[in-house]
Design a protein around this nucleic acid. Sequence first.
RNA 1: GGACCUGUGGUGCAGCUCGGAGUGCACGCCGGCCUGUCAAGCCGGAGGUCGCGGGUUCAAAUCCCGUCAGGUCCGCCA
Length: 434
Amino acid sequence: MIERTSIAKLSEFAEQKVTICGWTEKIRDQKTVQFIVLRDETGSVQLVREKVEGDSVCSTISDLSTDSVVQVIGVVKIDPRVKLGGLEVQIEDVVVLSKADPIPINEETSLDKRLDWRFIDLRSSRNRLIFEVQTELERSYRTTWEEEGFIEIHSPKLMGAASESGAELFRVDYFDTSAYLAQSPQFYKQMAMAAGFGKVFEIGPVFRANPSFTSRHDTEFTSVDVELSWVDSHEDVMNFEQHLLSRMLKDISDKFKDEIQSMFGVDVVVPKLPFPRIKLADAIEIVERSGHKIERTDGDLDPEGERRIADYVLKEFGHQFVFLTDYPATVRPYYHMRHAEDQTLTKSFDLVWKGLEITTGAQREHRYDILVNQAIEKGLELPPLQFYLDFFRYGMPPHGGFGMGLTRVLMILLGLKNVREVTFLYRGPNRLTP
RNA sequence: GGACCUGUGGUGCAGCUCGGAGUGCACGCCGGCCUGUCAAGCCGGAGGUCGCGGGUUCAAAUCCCGUCAGGUCCGCCA
């Protein structure tokens, strides 16, 4: 490794000689003095060099271009004149490790064009923060799972048959046959229940072949999936999820509250428990009373309805989250358990955060005969599903779980308008590169 | 898949209604000036088949038709 001091730690090295490495953010080449603002992963610092005729270091600096990668040896000087951190490094030597061509994007560039140059776009401290927050989010989730005795699984992404959730599938060549890319780990996390794993989680990619042209969809995204055995109802699943989320928001708040406020202008609110619950039928009534006519006829809420119910919950309960429960069986897959007293309603829920759906969950139907009947009722062909249905023939505990769109959570958390902003490399109907 | 919107130097825009020489602004880039800058400042410069094709016209970035690319919302969904 190159022996270097990170820029964030420079204040500990006053009057000492250090080596620092990074990207040249600004080069201000004046007649008698030269300044460079250098950035590494930890921050930015000003470098200075007195300009002398015929000095080779000075001419190296004069030839530098913005965003070149350099290694600098110099002495750290505390200097209150410097607005950037009150210190600077007096340059003794500069080595250009990689000279940059003119940068094709800037802060004003539209998202789509920035995505073409994502590796440059990600250099900004704002974008770096997104992924630091994502890392903390996943770390927090893992801490909860570890405390609660969860087992991590990695389910296959190549499948022989659809894991039914309504979404379209990508088909890929698979030797002399075809395979599908998994749209969800649904079947496999349920298999883990049959295997007696008790509680499992997976953070992994899922693929949706829907030509969805919106700011909240992608064709490949990271899904956070959880499944729990021995639940009494979907209420147990919601209780676990609200615990997971509130803990995560507390951890994010402790670590990044101020940074998120200054970079994104968003206040990270640690939600109170329990999250409000509203039955979908009641939610629809509330939305329609607010003056929004729901055009769709299948009994589900539309996006405007989700925003309105979120407004209502914020006003009535002062809460950013709301569980919408008891979806009609018509808009839920066959493996969602139905209420014993009302077969038209499922023991399922969506979680809406600030008006956006981030989760679907349910208690699953674990009784083989009922499950098969519900599949038939939905008009599904049984033979391709048999491997899945077999999970339920040899002892399956009652269980439930949920799937959470990681990018949607991050987007809402940071107050951003598009999942592309929070996805390392976005994949959509019109984008497969870089 | 449906509706709507946008394509103008490297980037972001204005110009389009009401046709008149590629006109303008900001950022960036190149050169010069400037004894400490720090959103640096000042002076100068380069850089464009106005997405593409056709039509109307003496004349099209501007009007009409087509086409391609991208976006937003809806549907699908996390």
